[in-house]
Design a protein around this nucleic acid. Structure first.
Lengths: 334, 334
DNA sequence: GACAACTTGGCAAACGTTTGCCAAAGATGT
DNA sequence: ACATCTTTGGCAAACGTTTGCCAAGTTGTC
């Protein structure tokens, strides 16, 4: 009944090399790992030749078992369909490969149960590190947090504690947009954000509001619209209905993500508004795609393409036992 | 100098369970693997309890080493920044997880050397299957092809042989667009495609051309523009310069991908053309994002979100030793 | 009462790697 | 000549799993 699984092929192992070079497996292992002083130059040369001749590559599985840790790094991301996360995934993958690691990608669709399932599965895989992009609170995350496993949080801070973080200064970004609107002479600003916000969303909104207050706005003069939806596109579209349906129509809108801006814009078009013109929209994300499909959108540009390098640098610090608090990357605006 | 790596934690192994249940490791192993007849009901119950009590999960690394094959599936994709591929990656990841596998994601940026590097690295990881999305010809791919390892090609057919394929009927899709233009009474059709084409691009173009010929167009009456660029956005933008700069301006354009359409559209806007109106653009891809950011674009909609399920179904057929030629999924148009 | 057949479960080898420890041989110092 | 140290390299255990084989114990049949 049950299929018997056959190995796909015989692998070239240390034993193969050892036999060919006429030495023991341990000697080859040490040379492979760069312990050149443990063998005479003649032996080293012989072994190196044999490695070359048979095309040996260390088997990561055997190594993982012995070391109790694989060369796999788990990236657990909330939603790959979001181009920003796709870019983070892509750049992290490239940086990890360069450093000799292999990335496992897990898409949680923002669901805590799925996040936990992945967290447990990855622990079983003996991964040597975790990259959590926009993590949600969950039991498994608390355990991970407590276990002290090498972890870097990206975009959203650790929702159940603290830990190394790579992102931008969200508060400052929100404030920058507020300044921009104020300097432009806008009178009726609005801000759109998801109802179930993350630390990032909250900070962007509060930075925006704080700066506007500083520049003379009263709280009720600022339109705040949260939207619901499983994607930020929906969030923006839903919030747009309320923004453009109220008594005051805003002349300037901050959307905390590109996708929200797309949703708001669609609603605006349906209502016959001109963007920009009747109303300016600014978003925070600024993926390159905007230049192609949303030239009407001005953005705070987050350097997602360099996130990967920062994330891997952070992991390497942690692996070396050094500390890594947070790395706030500069954004571009205007 | 060199850091000594410490295992993150002690893992709960078969030995832990065996000690607690008072049986041998082999007995536990057999029960974990569902061989219930090899032990008395009483023993089985005791072992199951122990498993529950200590929270045992099989270690995939040990298993992989013993079986000569891991539960990892390699997805090697040409360009994650393309939303279509991101959707394929996402849906495949979900389907694999459901089937108990773990996906490793590799982004080759369309570069053969990188594709080879990944192919070799994944072989060393003892992956149990390969999903190649938009593969490019390379030495390693030929070797993989020859080795008979379980492989599914997606979107683009195997460029160095043949093998299981998941995609759409590209030829028919191109023809459908041709019919659409003809029925609409368009006179000056154009087609835009990347200079370095894949089987998919070529088939879409040739299907389009063949149908137009069938409906009375001469070859020179059809504008064909190939574009260069590292992304399809660039391809479209570059080809757009030639299309809109020639003597004949087309009244209808087929772009073989969404991203090319974005590029063409940008060029059209720069030239002051109205889309649609002066010129219809139709693309092949039809990602959901279009509805939000490119309402001007009509598309053949490829069901990327269900690719994952088909890919995994294909892999499972292959693992079972059954054959799996190709699966052409239905697309939606209009 | 003898013998076969089945049930139940353990032993041990194997997968590929790493590494602590030991042994042989050569080099150096007295 | 002897003690000590260094160089060179192998042995064997360990990581967690699977599985062929064997050894008891139980049951059934004549």
């Amino acid at each position: 009944m049950t299929m018997k699984r056959q190995p796909i092929r015989e692998y070239i192992s240390l034993a193969t090399v050892a036999a060919r070079a006429g030495v023991s497996v341990s000697t080859v292992s040490r040379i492979v790992n760069g312990e050149m002083r443990r063998a005479s130059p003649a032996t080293v040369a012989r072994v190196l030749d044999a490695i070359e001749a048979v095309g040996y590559r260390p088997n990561p599985v055997g190594r993982a078992l012995q070391r109790g840790q694989s060369q796999l790094v788990a990236m657990i991301a909330a939603n790959l369909d979001n181009p920003a996360m796709a870019t983070i995934a892509s750049s992290t993958e490239a940086a990890l490969r360069e450093a000799g690691y292999v990335m496992v990608l897990c898409d949680t669709h923002d669901r805590p149960e799925l996040q936990d399932e992945y967290l447990y599965a990855m622990r079983a895989q003996m991964v040597c590190g975790y990259v959590l992009v926009a993590a949600v609170p969950s039991r498994g995350l608390s355990e991970l947090s407590a276990s002290g496993a090498p972890t870097v949080f990206v975009s959203r801070r650790n929702p159940v504690g603290n830990g190394p973080f790579v992102g931008i200064d969200d508060c400052a970004a929100g404030a920058a947009v507020a300044d921009y609107f104020a300097n432009l002479g806008r009178r009726v600003p609005a801000v759109v954000f998801p109802r179930l916000g993350s630390s990032a969303s909250r900070d962007r909104v509060s930075g925006f509001l704080a700066k506007l207050r500083e520049r003379g706005w009263s709280d009720k003069a600022i339109i705040q619209a949260d939207g619901e939806g499983r994607s930020h596109l929906q969030v923006g579209y839903n919030a747009g209905a309320r923004i453009f349906g109220g008594s005051d129509t805003p002349d300037s809108i901050l959307c905390v993500s590109d996708q929200i801006a797309y949703g708001v814009n669609r609603r605006a078009l349906e209502r016959g508004l001109k963007i920009p013109g009747d109303c300016d929209i600014v978003s925070i994300d600024g993926t390159p795609l905007n230049q192609w499909v949303a030239p009407w959108l001005k953005s705070i540009e987050i350097p997602y393409a360099v996130y990967g390098a920062e994330i891997v640098a952070g992991l390497q610090l942690i692996w070396r036992g050094e500390s890594f608090g947070e790395r706030l990357l500069p954004y571009k605006f205007g």
